[in-house]
Design a protein around this nucleic acid. Sequence first.
DNA 1: CCGCATCCTGGATGATACTG
DNA 2: CAGTATCATCCAGGATGCGG
Lengths: 122, 122
Amino acid sequence: MSEELQGETCQELQAALDIISGKWKPIILFHLMENEKLRFSELQRAMPEITKKMLTSQLRELEYNGIIHREVYQQVPPKVEYSMTEYGNSLSPLMKSMRSWGMKHLQRMEKMESADKKEAVN
Amino acid sequence: MSEELQGETCQELQAALDIISGKWKPIILFHLMENEKLRFSELQRAMPEITKKMLTSQLRELEYNGIIHREVYQQVPPKVEYSMTEYGNSLSPLMKSMRSWGMKHLQRMEKMESADKKEAVN
DNA sequence: CCGCATCCTGGATGATACTG
DNA sequence: CAGTATCATCCAGGATGCGG
């Protein structure tokens, strides 16, 4: 066993996961990858369940990590636009392969569920 | 905007994330990918911080999802070995690219930190 | 040795109201 | 419009002890 280095060996994994995982991050990233630029209110409309507080905090984290850009227009009423940074877009291949793995997995699990049902009936 | 389908569009993403994310899953997967077979107690030794309860529950989830195999040896004292399934190993490329993205990210963040310090000094 | 049952805490998340 | 402030809630995760 490679003692001692579990934590360190996985911190890169964790670092990546911190950014793309969570209840809202994937959805936010998805929308911003699809849309070039989105206003705060547009994001909110796209995710009716999310509260302003959560949306704000998640966006701030992504901004802090350099994944998204926050553009404030000095005007009344206020206007703020969010967009992926170039760096943020480097996540795209990862997200895509995660999505396709996830898709296969869901299909697989579905099959197993129905197999279970058959077993249960027998 | 693609209304209505945010949740569904991201459920594949979430499905994949559910499996590899969390405080312990990445570490467990890492060890099992490195080691072919590991006993419960070996895993525990490899992750001194984890409680038995957490280790058990995380292993059960992974088993339920078909990622790992649980082999019980009928003997006293009990012996249980865990190993990646073939299906579980299909996660390997994903994990690898996550790791390399995370590694770059950590380096990038480090640079930015030290840049911040310089600014603070100025 | 392996793992379940019970109880419990803290941090993440949510509801609501307010503001520049 | 785009947030902040405050308070309430919830549940993943942890501590501990028992049992096959």
